[in-house]
Simulated scan of single mutants.
Amino acid sequence: MTITQLTYVLAVAEYQNFTKAAEKCFVTQPTLSMQIQKLEDQLSIQIFDRSKKPIELTDVGRKIVSQARNIVNESYRIQDIVDQQKGFIGGEFRIGIIPTVMPTLLPMFLKTFIKKHPKVKLKIEELTTEEIITRINDGHLDAAIAATPLENANIKERVLYFEPFVAYVPNNHRLKDKKILEVSDLDIDDMLLLEDGHCFRDGVINLCKGFKDQTDEHFQLESGSIETLIKLSNEGMGMTLLPYLHTIDMSESAKQNLHHFTAPSPAREVSIIYHKSELKMQIIEAMQEVIASVVRGAIAFRNVQIVSPLAK
């Protein structure tokens, strides 16, 4: 068997279609099919049940795909070893960033990183944490930036920074006159939240539930973006919580509605995460170094309490 054959198997397993898999592998469909058939003949088993639409893995096929993914990933390590030996930091690097981090962090570090490491070709996608975990495990992302800890055995985490939660309280809200808040002041029933699927939403829910015995998730309103939450709050629909970096470029009038928390301030942990196979570590370490240097000047908070991003 060959690495190429195993790569073709992984592609068909993912796309459940020989034609789509061939397109993604940049080969003709007959070539891909012939190589997979050759592998099946050699092993005297069927990896795919071709009678199903879409194509499905057989029971033994699932086991083969799991092992094939490990073998293909390990084969990439050879090039990594060579690159690290030469001190080379370059090549394609696929990274995912969660939506509540992308608009604030990316403009802070991207220009600096590109200038410092011009041989790295970044491919950046905005993805939810769930999508990121799937793509890292499938080998379609080299790394990601997300809220942690994720408690996933296949994923390693390197903390980049701790980002405090800041309350945005409109003028008509019951907490408008209390500039320094206690977490116990929060009431989830008058909190504007991001839509389901955002880990920052789960962090807010976990924060409120940690200090109030709330089991009924009765929300007034949910939205898909932090900017919309702020606008809705200004319309008197409730208060909301924001990640600290989202507050830096606010107008002076909007900053009048910001309320910080007493120490230790609730915060989220933001990390660069990657598969435990540790591929392309030289690029991951370079990115960690650049991000840490640019964020260090923006976030000086140290006395924080980390809020879990995991949905309870």
Rank of each mutant, 00 (worst) to 15 (best):
H218W: 13
V12H: 13
A11D: 03
L43R: 11
L186G: 04
K86P: 07
K312G: 15
Y15V: 09
S51A: 11
I64C: 06
I283N: 05
L279H: 12
Q5K: 14
V72L: 05
A167S: 13
G297H: 07
S223P: 03
G139L: 08
M191A: 02
M237C: 13
I36Q: 04
L232P: 02
N303C: 04
D187A: 09
V307P: 03
R50V: 08
T262F: 01
S233L: 05
E163Q: 06
T104N: 04
M281K: 13
E74T: 04
T31E: 12
R77F: 03
I299Q: 02
V166T: 06
A263R: 15
Q46T: 08
N234Q: 06
V101K: 01
F93K: 02
K280I: 07
K52E: 12
I145H: 05
A286S: 05
N234A: 07
H198C: 01
K176Y: 10
M102W: 07
K178S: 13
I71S: 06
I188Y: 11
F93T: 00
V82I: 14
S265E: 12
G96Q: 00
D202M: 01
Y161A: 07
K255E: 04
E278V: 10
L150E: 01
C25Q: 14
R158H: 12
M250R: 08
Q42K: 08
F162V: 08
L229K: 05
E163Y: 03
V307S: 04
G297M: 09
F211L: 10
L229T: 07
N206V: 14
F26M: 11
F93I: 02
A254Q: 02
T104A: 13
F162G: 04
E40V: 00
K115Q: 12
I284K: 09
F301V: 01
P264H: 09
H198D: 07
N154D: 15
S308G: 06
Q46Y: 09
R62A: 08
Q220H: 12
S265L: 10
D185H: 10
L110K: 13
L6P: 06
F219E: 11
E40Q: 04
E278S: 08
I124S: 00
M239R: 04
V72W: 01
L258V: 12
Y8T: 00
I132Q: 01
E227S: 03
R94H: 14
G96V: 01
V304K: 06
A22P: 01
N303D: 10
V307W: 00
I248S: 03
D196G: 09
M250C: 05
I71C: 05
F200S: 07
I47M: 05
S251V: 04
A311V: 15
V169F: 08
E252I: 08
K209L: 08
L186W: 04
N303Y: 03
F26C: 04
T247D: 01
T134L: 03
V204Y: 00
E126Y: 09
A11E: 01
L192E: 00
K156S: 15
T148S: 06
Q305E: 15
T228N: 11
D187N: 12
A311I: 13
L141T: 04
I89W: 00
D190N: 07
E56Q: 00
P103W: 13
R296H: 15
I205N: 05
L192P: 03
I205K: 01
I306C: 02
L122E: 03
I47H: 07
F261K: 13
F88C: 05
H173C: 12
I45E: 13
L57V: 04
E163D: 10
F48P: 14
R69E: 15
N172T: 10
T148H: 02
A146W: 02
L192M: 10
D138V: 02
